[in-house]
């Protein structure tokens, strides 16, 4: 099975993000692979180990984004491609991604490389847009199943499960298809040092739009950030005094009536 995995480099969850003004953010230079993408990579590797084939990881991003591809190599990917072009700079920045532009690029990559199955995270941890996967599938005109928690390959098709709030749904879809990974799909492995050192020395090549036969003017920002607002400071903590049973009842009341959380 020829599997493609789309991965995205996002700011580390512990990176400091500062609002320079209401229209620009400064992100600390700490990046990592988006969490849901790590699940997609792991699932691709497990499918390959079980059924044979190849795993190719792809990202769209500047040179620093090559690090997530290096991680994919360390984990066991067979090949990686970083797609970058100056024409992409306005639509893929540190703090904003134009999903449709990236989907157009990834759809072109998928056609260029060929595939049986594409895996990606259900959403990126930076913008939570959850858009690139579904848009790419639409552009490729292939089935798309979001937020899968189990994947089983069958002859010419794939059987997946989605779980939410205790409910479960099983779906069968024909290949080729695009699946997005949900938490619980697997527990990503740690890379073997031998592969880490090999990946550390690997040259990560970049492909530009011309190599994918995409006209630069096809990359048009469809949505643009207008302003950023810093969140309010965390709400202050309330201590509910009294007997434990009474305090618990009061907590439930507040969650239900004041926060509508229950």
């Amino acid at each position: 099975m020829k599997i493609l995995v789309f991965v995205k480099q996002v700011p580390d969850t512990e990176a400091l993000v500062e609002a320079l003004d209401d229209s620009s953010l400064k992100v600390e230079e700490k990046f990592e692979m988006s969490f849901f993408d790590t699940l997609a990579v792991e699932e691709a590797l497990r499918l390959k180990e079980k059924h044979g084939g190849t795993v190719t990881a792809v990202t769209v991003g500047p040179e620093r984004a090559g690090e997530v591809l290096r991680t994919c190599l360390a984990l066991g990917a067979d090949s990686v491609f970083r797609i970058w072009d100056e024409a992409l700079a306005p639509v893929v920045t540190d703090v904003f991604t134009d999903s449709l532009s990236v989907a157009r690029v990834l759809a072109a990559v998928a056609k260029h490389l060929g595939f049986d199955l594409i895996l990606c995270g259900k959403q990126a941890l930076d913008d939570d847009a959850a858009a690139v996967g579904v848009m790419t599938a639409a552009l490729l005109e292939i089935p798309f199943v979001t937020a899968v928690t189990s994947v089983k390959a069958e002859e010419g098709s794939i059987r997946v499960k989605q779980k939410r709030d205790g409910a479960e749904r099983e779906i069968k879809c024909e290949l080729p298809a695009l699946l997005s990974a949900e938490k619980g799909l697997n527990e990503p492995r740690q890379p073997q040092v031998m592969k880490v050192m090999k990946a550390a020395r690997a040259k990560i090549d970049a492909m530009d739009l011309a190599a994918l036969k995409i006209q630069a003017d096809a990359i048009i920002s469809t949505v643009k950030p207008v302003s950023f607002t810093v969140p309010d400071k965390a709400r202050s903590i309330s201590i509910i005094e009294g007997e434990p049973a009474d305090a618990a009842a009061e907590l439930v009341r507040r969650l239900r009536e004041e926060r509508q959380a229950l």
Partner: peptide, 19 residues
């Protein structure tokens, strides 16, 4: 070196998740 930087990141990640 670039290799050492990558190694450090991988080890730090392993330590954070496993150790």
């Amino acid at each position: 070196t670039e290799e050492q930087k990558f190694f450090q990141k991988v080890v730090a990640d392993m330590v954070e998740k496993v150790v």
